[in-house]
Amino acid sequence: MKSALKLFSLLFMFVAFIACSDDEDDVPDLVAIEANTASNIPAPQTGGQGEPVGGPFTKFSFETGTTTNSETDWDIAFRGTSIAVNGGSTTGTTDEPERNGNAGAAIENSTFSEVASASGLTFTQDTDGAFAVPAGSDNGWYNYNPATFTITPIPGKILVIRTHDGKYAKIEILSYYRDAPAQPDPMSDESRVYTFKYVYNPNEGETSLVE
């Protein structure tokens, strides 16, 4: 009786194992998830310092890993310290791109590697009057230090992005200054130039964000 049980359970495990491996064989090849760094993405703006902010956003696509001029195939966009997502509606400032995708953003407080998955997160979209990544110092992704006049990405703020076509990526902004100097000098280093690290999962429906 005892040995019969043993045999039975072995058999079950075997079948289960076979079934599993079958499953994996059935799935179409997942595209490998890669970590990338986007360097020196310019994000110019006009106005500021009390004047109305304007100028076109620099749009970025995770799929191509580059900036894009496409009106539709973009995920996030940068202008000065503002970050727009291709989802929701325009916030009301001038020269904003039209939102025609389903992108959204969630901000996690963690290290980059610890953000392992996009599942279970709440994604917000741009709405009239507010960006999904909140504007202003200490509200969203950056801190402005009035003693040193420096914009610093807040360490530990990881942006998880749902792309315009429903895929997931996480990004960590490393610098707001050209060539990402460790200690930027706001007087001599060019600002409004983003460098960020990102992981993009190109597989439809997959939420994993680790390589």
Binding site: N109, T111, F112, P153, I154, P155, G156, L174
Partner: peptide, 15 residues
């Protein structure tokens, strides 16, 4: 564990 900094070399977040 809610406070982070950036490694000055790699610019990566560390706890």
């Amino acid at each position: 564990g809610e406070v982070f900094a950036r490694d000055p070399e790699t610019l990566e977040t560390i706890r």
